[in-house]
Amino acid sequence: MKTNSVLEKIFASGQFAVTSECGPPRGAMPGIVKEKAEHLRGYVDAVNVTDNQTAMVRMSSFAASIILREMGLHPVLQMVTRDRNRIALQSDLIGAYAHDINTVLCLSGDHPHFGDHAMAANVYDMDSVQLVEAVRNMREDGRLQGGAEVENLPRMFIGAAANPFADPFELRVARLAKKIMAGVDFIQTQCIYNLDKFERWMAGIRDRGLHKKVYIMAGVTPMKSEGMAKYMKNKVPGMDVPDEIIKRMAGVPKDKQAREGIDISIESIQRLKEIEGVNGIHLMAIEWEQKVPEIIERAGLYPRPDIV
């Protein structure tokens, strides 16, 4: 084992992993973090804690991750390179590890343009691939970016994101290979609605044997309504929502759409589970954490393995 990460243990034991997400609130409200996280207890193996997602100021991922850890859950510390330089990023990694947080997801982050702080300086001292490399260097070489050898550097299980649907498609397999080269251990993908395209991407991954070098978790987000489906299709960068999904959502009365959205995600999970090289599901129920247990149970992913 490279780390103490529960996620790594589940993958290593050959079991199918499940993660979900907890978006911290905008105010100092630890109660909300706990409430959201409590819905997930027992139904997922680890919980991603988002880092100022959509470039909106929120409680830091680091602080909310500590709250989760104290609850006995396993946070996946999301880190975007948008807001902090490599000094701050490494410092937070050390701090997080000191609080028994051992799994990190390295991201570049949404551009400030999308949030409510579009006037903020854009840091991007590093990109997500370089952050993966930095975390790997800490773990494997015991070195900081500046070159110093330091004792007790974090031994993080390293995740990154992949979007099989962004353009150019032909580059998407090569990009994953690049993240593997940098040292990534697991991948969580963008929400998958276009399963055919995802399967084409996975075929490309398998052709190059990349699925043997990294654990891949397929991203699933249940839709609450036809409106959300349209929003995801039209407004969220890099999202591929096929028209059939929109039609299917639109085809049921408004009060049944949430149910339909959940059914779609369960069907997706069942299909994704069968794809060779998919090692887990990352269920992003955005502001809908209470539905996670139902989806996990109905998708046949419950109970979760007992890993200590």
Partner: peptide, 19 residues
């Protein structure tokens, strides 16, 4: 837009930037 040295990020579409 993010001065990525190992891009593109996941937000590009039709050859255009997410912003």
């Amino acid at each position: 837009s993010k001065r990525l040295m190992n891009g593109p990020c996941g937000g590009s579409g039709d050859g255009k930037c997410e912003i």
